[in-house]
């Protein structure tokens, strides 16, 4: 077993972790798009005209990518999507922190701000997830999951 092979096996739990994370995270956003729209507005980056579109579509993209990762179908594609989304969230986070947006003061309507106020720790956490997604993207060999069942051979 060389390093690449080990890495390939490690992508499996990584995929399940990321997949579950994203599917779990997006459910409440689908259930309550209005709250999610308020969360997005709090960052004050998107113009008002785009906020609703983002609030409606983003959770479904998370759901699709997360589900695809979980079942191991088109893993490269879904990990690219997840990595892309994480990069966007990170950028938004860094802009917000640079502006001094202190969400822990309780002065924001956003539920997310109350429960999960942004901080440097949030950036580290998101970097970790971005790293995981890139890891899966690079090292996945389709060893477990639907890709494996369909292709029956690594790329």
């Amino acid at each position: 077993m060389n390093a690449t092979r080990i890495a390939a096996w490690l992508t499996v739990p990584a995929r399940w972790y990321l997949g579950l994370l994203f599917v779990a995270a997006c459910l409440h956003k689908i259930a309550d798009p209005h709250s999610f729209a308020i969360d997005i507005s709090t960052y004050d980056i998107l113009p008002l005209s785009l906020v609703n579109l983002a609030a409606i579509t983003l959770p479904w993209i998370e759901l699709a990518a997360g589900a695809m990762l979980l079942v191991g179908w088109r893993v490269r594609t879904s990990s690219v999507l997840i990595a892309g989304m994480m990069a966007v969230f990170l950028a938004a986070l860094m802009v917000a922190l640079a502006r001094g947006l202190d969400m822990s003061c309780g002065c924001f309507a956003s539920q997310g701000a109350d429960e999960d106020p942004i901080s440097r720790l949030t950036i580290l956490r998101d970097l970790w997830w971005l790293g995981l997604a890139l890891f899966v993207l690079v090292f996945d060999r389709g060893l477990v999951g639907i890709d494996h069942l369909l292709d029956r051979r690594p790329e």
């Binding site: 004050d44 008002l48 002065c107 924001f108 309507a109 956003s110």
Partner: peptide, 8 residues
């Protein structure tokens, strides 16, 4: 616009 702020 969304009501982003609430009374502190």
């Amino acid at each position: 616009p969304y009501q982003v702020l609430v009374p502190c």
